[in-house]
């Protein structure tokens, strides 16, 4: 996982629980001692350990923590890379650009970013199904990112997750229905 994700996690914990809490977490579980550089890769296990420690410290369920992190991450990424949201006029078009535009740009900059794969289907107007596949199984992070994006675009959405990698499926389906 790229260092930028760790930095955003640090920002979230510092903002919501304070610098001391993050310092304690880093002290406990981070082999890198919290020194993360955006373009550098760090082990997925280190991120999962940090997230686990955050859940424990703040007494929140893991899935909720990851979802909240995703939502927070969207705001941070949107402020760091505003061009991607500026290019898309609405939520659905933005979500559809994740695989074909954003991930393509990420791959230009980083070697082996191990990005998740998205396929899309639109069974009805205002309804988008994102077929998510990733060895990391961070579908709850994707949920949070989608919620963050919906908030950014001011869209009311209903988000369902009927097919999930965590329940034995080979991919996740994230159904997004926007209010027309």
């Amino acid at each position: 996982m790229k260092g930028v994700v760790f930095n955003i996690l640090a920002d979230m914990v510092e903002e919501t629980a304070g610098l001391e809490v993050w310092n304690d977490i880093v002290e406990e579980v981070s082999p890198s001692k919290g020194a993360y550089t955006a373009a550098q890769s760090y082990s997925d296990e280190e991120l999962f350990a940090l997230v686990g420690a955050v859940c424990e410290k703040l007494q929140i369920p893991r899935e909720d923590a990851i979802r909240a992190f995703g939502k927070f991450m969207f705001g941070q990424l949107a402020s760091r890379y505003p061009i991607f949201v500026q290019q898309q006029p609405d939520l659905i078009r933005f979500l559809k650009s994740v695989d074909s535009v954003i991930h393509v740009e990420v791959e230009k900059l980083y070697t082996s970013p191990h990005l998740p794969e998205f396929k899309y289907s639109e069974p009805a107007p205002g309804k988008l199904i994102m077929h998510y596949h990733s060895e990391r199984k961070l579908c709850f992070l994707a949920e949070g990112l989608i919620m963050g994006a919906a908030e950014h675009y001011g869209s009311q959405i209903e988000l369902k997750h009927p097919v999930c990698l965590h329940h034995g499926a080979d991919h996740c389906e994230l159904e997004i229905e926007t209010a027309i």
Partner: peptide, 16 residues
């Protein structure tokens, strides 16, 4: 640091 990282990314993109 964020600005430095941004600079690095911009340069990486230019290089690419």
């Amino acid at each position: 640091r964020r600005e430095a990282e941004q600079l690095l990314e911009d340069k990486s993109r230019e290089l690419y």
